[in-house]
Simulated scan of single mutants.
Amino acid sequence: MQGLEQHWYRITPLHLILLPISFIFQVLAATRRVLYRSGILTSVKLPVPIIVVGNITVGGSGKTPLTLWLAQQLIDSGWHPGIISRGHGGTTKSPLAVYVSSSPIEAGDEAVLMAQRKLCPVWIGRDRVGAARALLKAHPECDIVLSDDGLQHYRLQRDFEIAVVDGVRRFGNGFLLPAGPLREPLSRLTQVDAIVVHGGAATEDQHSMQLFGQSFYNLLNSNATAQAADFFGQRLHALAGIGHPQRFFTHLNLLGLKVQAHPFPDHHRFTPADLDYIEADAILMTEKDAVKCATFANEKCWVLRVDAQLDSLITQQILEKVTPDGRQTA
């Protein structure tokens, strides 16, 4: 998919070949959804509410920060959430608990990042039903589950769907894979419970989300922290292997930092060679990339922690839907 991405935000001669394939993909995706909705393919209802955070496009849009924000909101409201994820980029297929010390090669970078926040249990599995069942068995105190990136995983029934939209890249050229970045047609957005727009203009019935972060910590010593001003005047390089690397570089620029940017593909598996050739006073990176560089990082590596910021109305929407009996929360 990496080579095709350059064709997803414009129209090129290659679309003469891609569009017929895209039409076939659309038919297959629609058929699959109909089969689940009609009961021909079996979906599973779990004993606790399931909140799905996903998107209809390929690539990162801010799902993981939103999932962590929702987990904190639910904890503050008296719930005991658990998080499940596919473990994208990891080698594990079967359900697996993810801990602070888990390997991102095995569990995936995003799952390890979520576990390192220490908010609630995190489990992964390509079958989200299996991952959720394993989580609930290991943690019977969990009374609600957040599924990170599970919008198209229809085998798992859900009580509330959230679609995250990249407010900058939006929907590219509007075509489905492989001609464009869409996993499902735009009409899918009319069927979700809430739409969160990350980093762009939101309509009145949508929620606007920003990622906020201005403090860094040293990758070798998390107790060592720094502010953006501490890096002024230094030779700075920044690397990002996320869905939209330019978003990270722009964030650094807004903090007043001039960096030499090194973009990598999403979920890039970093090696020592990716750092060894960089001559800099400081190398700045995202939390998602930091979990993959921790074993070979040097003292020049600094990590920017970011947190989602959005209105609490979406939390109210969720609680109103998953507590129809009027359950009181703390």
Rank of each mutant, 00 (worst) to 15 (best):
M1G: 13
G3Y: 06
E5H: 04
H7R: 10
R10T: 12
H15T: 07
L18Q: 09
L18W: 07
V27N: 03
T31F: 13
L35P: 01
Y36D: 00
R37M: 08
R37G: 02
S38N: 13
V44R: 11
L46A: 02
P47R: 11
P49H: 02
P49C: 02
I51W: 11
I56F: 01
G59E: 00
G60V: 08
T64W: 02
L68R: 04
Q72T: 13
P81N: 03
I84Q: 05
I84A: 04
R86M: 08
G87M: 01
G87F: 08
T91E: 10
T91P: 01
T92C: 10
L96H: 13
A97H: 12
V98R: 03
S103G: 08
P104R: 06
P104V: 05
I105D: 14
A107D: 00
A111T: 10
V112K: 04
A115K: 05
K118F: 00
V122H: 10
W123S: 02
W123A: 03
I124E: 01
R128L: 09
A132I: 09
L135V: 12
L136Q: 10
C142W: 03
I144C: 14
L146A: 05
H153Q: 12
H153F: 08
Q157Y: 09
Q157K: 15
D159F: 07
F160R: 14
I162Y: 13
V164W: 12
D166E: 05
V168N: 12
R169E: 06
G172H: 08
N173F: 11
L177M: 15
L177P: 09
P178S: 01
G180M: 07
P181D: 00
L186R: 13
L186T: 08
S187N: 13
L189T: 12
D193Y: 06
A194H: 14
A194F: 14
V197Q: 01
V197L: 03
H198N: 15
H198K: 14
H198G: 00
T203I: 00
E204L: 09
S208M: 02
M209L: 07
M209F: 10
F212N: 14
G213T: 08
G213A: 01
S215I: 12
F216R: 09
L219D: 02
L220E: 08
S222V: 13
N223Q: 15
A224C: 06
A224M: 12
A226N: 07
Q227H: 14
A229N: 12
G233N: 12
G241E: 04
I242F: 04
R247N: 06
H251N: 05
N253C: 00
L255F: 09
G256A: 11
L257H: 13
D266K: 06
H268G: 06
L275D: 02
I278Q: 04
I283V: 14
I283W: 04
I283L: 11
M285Y: 03
M285N: 04
D289L: 02
V291D: 03
F296E: 05
F296L: 03
A297I: 01
N298E: 05
E299M: 01
L304N: 04
D307S: 14
L310T: 05
L310N: 06
D311G: 14
S312A: 13
L313M: 07
I314M: 06
Q316V: 11
Q317R: 15
Q317P: 11
Q317D: 13
L319W: 05
K321H: 09
T323E: 06
P324V: 02
P324Y: 02
P324D: 01
Q328W: 10
Q328A: 11
